[in-house]
C-alpha cells in the first residue's frame, strides 16, 4: 500500500496487511495525532489496510502564535 505523510509531504510504500494502529506504531506516529484517510473516509485503529490501498496520514496539530487555528 502507499502511505502519504505530511509536514513534509512524502510517500512510503508498505508491504503486507495490518491494522491501522500497527501501521502507525511502525511509523512512530501516535494515533491521536493524525487522521487516517482511505477513499475519502476516516479509518479507526482496528481497520485492516494493505494491498492497493492509498492512505493519507494527516497530522492534526496546529500551533504557534495564540493557537486557535
Amino acid at each position: 500500500m502507499k502511505v502519504i505523510l505530511r509536514n513534509p509531504r512524502r510517500e512510503v510504500d508498505v508491504e503486507g496487511k495490518r491494522r491501522v494502529k500497527e501501521l502507525l506504531s511502525e511509523l512512530g506516529i501516535l494515533p491521536s495525532t493524525v487522521l487516517v484517510i482511505r477513499d475519502n473516509e476516516l479509518l479507526t485503529g482496528d481497520a485492516m489496510v494493505g494491498g492497493d490501498d492509498v492512505l493519507e496520514v494527516r497530522p492534526v496539530m496546529s500551533g504557534g502564535g495564540g493557537g486557535g487555528a
Binding site: 476516516l42 494527516r58 504557534g64 487555528a69
Partner: peptide, 26 residues
C-alpha cells in the same frame, strides 16, 4: 484537536493542512 480535524474533514471543509512555517520549534 483530533476531534476538530475529524469534524472539518467529515463536513467537507477545505482547510489548510500545512502548518505555519514559523510554528516549527514553537
Amino acid at each position: 484537536e483530533l476531534e476538530t480535524a475529524a469534524y472539518a474533514f467529515l463536513r467537507g471543509i477545505d482547510y489548510i493542512v500545512e502548518e505555519c512555517p514559523f510554528a516549527k520549534g514553537a
